[in-house]
Amino acid sequence: MDDPLPPPTSPEQLPATRPFKGRGAASNPEGRFESIRHQAEDDGWQSALLDEDAPRPPTCVTEERASSVISRNDSPDIAFSQAINPYRGCEHGCIYCFARPSHSYLNLSPGLDFETRLRAKGNFAEVLRAELAKPGYAVSPINIGSNTDPYQPVEKRWRLTRAALELLAECRHPCTIVTKNALVERDLDILVPMARERLVQVFFSVNSLDNHLAAKLEPRASAPHRRIKAIRTLAAAGVPVGVLVAPVIPALNDKDMEAVMAQAADAGARCAGYTTLRLPYELKALFREWLALHAPQRAEHVMSLVRQMNGGRDYDSDFATRMRGQGVFADLLRRRFEVACRKHGFGRARELVLDTSRFVPPRKASPQGELF
């Protein structure tokens, strides 16, 4: 069902002349599949709507019924072959999120819609149970949060991620979690027993230690220092934790790579990984708009380095280079990362081997319940 909230401000009503507090995108461009385009023009009559008291787009969550929840991939540059995502869209509002263009499949905008018009898969755990119970199911670690963050703020109410973890723990299925929200601490009662059986590993994405920058890049994610604290909490409880410096944006947050890894190591992280900025489809224009609003003086320099790392384009989808880039600047990042890994004794992010031998298929749900 829909939350009793008004829909977000329509894209054609407000030109992107200023950012919205608490949101990453400043506009709502049409998705790439739309046949109609709207062009906003400020004729002076809307100036009253552009002050600090202008209404801000609220978050609206719609429940949907999923037919399947496990997605599979054979990409050579991705460490997992199975993933689940309880939500479509993400309230964290990270402007760099490579998943933004996926909202176009819902006839919604990759801009403000992606972070304000969310979909929650209400039958998530039920469908996951049915898929894990299939006779031909082959066990391999499932990643939770490959597309959108499983611990984004709406998880507090919907608890879909927790329901999935409860099921995975019940049938001893290994999983990895990627998040940038300290809400994961809530589920320590599930994660700690799973960790004892080598069934879980948690990765925190931390790409900067600058709170002011993070508040603009990823406005509704936990602050960087809070994520470091969460790493310490999970590590102290015995849950294996890794840090992902992702994405590294040249001339914007790349200076923090070593500092992030140092603080994560001190907090108890065991391994590390990094990726460079990826700008597929509509994300190119959204990120350029963000730069114009938040970092106008260095916008051209940032994009010049991005193009250098992508063979002269804003984005290169080649599996061999899309995660790490190419060229001189990309090589420098790689060397810096390797030096920091050696200094702090980090293993690579995919080195921990989770145990797939303990899996017990769950029983299919029965309207008659269970006697034993």
Rank of each mutant, 00 (worst) to 15 (best):
P6D: 04
P8E: 03
T9R: 06
T9Q: 10
P11H: 09
P11S: 14
E12K: 04
E12R: 03
E12W: 09
Q13V: 15
Q13D: 07
P15L: 05
P19W: 00
P19F: 01
F20S: 02
P29E: 04
H38M: 06
E41G: 10
D42A: 09
D42T: 04
D43K: 06
L49T: 08
D51W: 02
D53H: 07
P55L: 15
P58T: 06
T59A: 08
V61A: 04
V69N: 08
I70R: 13
I70S: 07
D74C: 14
S75K: 14
D77Y: 12
D77V: 12
F80K: 03
S81D: 11
I84C: 03
N85K: 11
P86N: 11
P86A: 15
C90S: 06
C90N: 09
G93M: 13
I95E: 01
C97V: 14
P101N: 11
S102D: 03
H103D: 07
S104F: 09
S104I: 10
L106I: 02
L106M: 11
R117I: 10
R117M: 08
N123Y: 10
F124C: 06
E126L: 07
V127T: 13
L128A: 11
E131H: 06
L132C: 09
S140Y: 02
P141H: 10
G145F: 04
S146E: 14
N147C: 13
T148V: 06
P150E: 12
Q152S: 05
R157A: 14
R157Y: 10
R159Q: 12
A163D: 08
E166I: 05
L168R: 05
A169L: 06
A169M: 09
P174R: 03
T179V: 13
T179G: 07
K180Q: 08
K180I: 11
A182W: 03
R186E: 09
R186M: 07
L191N: 02
L191Y: 02
V192C: 09
V192T: 10
R196T: 11
V200G: 02
F203L: 05
F204V: 01
N207C: 05
H212M: 05
H212V: 08
H212T: 05
L213W: 00
K216F: 00
E218P: 02
E218G: 06
P224G: 01
H225S: 11
R227W: 01
R227H: 01
I228G: 00
T233E: 12
A237R: 07
A237V: 13
P240E: 05
V241D: 00
V243R: 00
I249G: 00
K255Q: 15
E258R: 13
A259P: 00
A269S: 02
R278T: 04
P280F: 13
Y281R: 08
K284Q: 15
K284C: 13
A285L: 15
W290Q: 02
A295D: 07
R298F: 04
A299M: 06
E300M: 00
S304H: 10
R313L: 14
D316R: 09
D318I: 12
F319W: 13
T321L: 11
M323Y: 06
A330T: 06
R335N: 06
R335F: 07
H344V: 14
F346A: 10
A349I: 15
L352W: 04
L352E: 12
L352F: 09
L354S: 08
D355M: 14
V360H: 11
K364N: 10
A365E: 12
G369Y: 09
E370K: 11
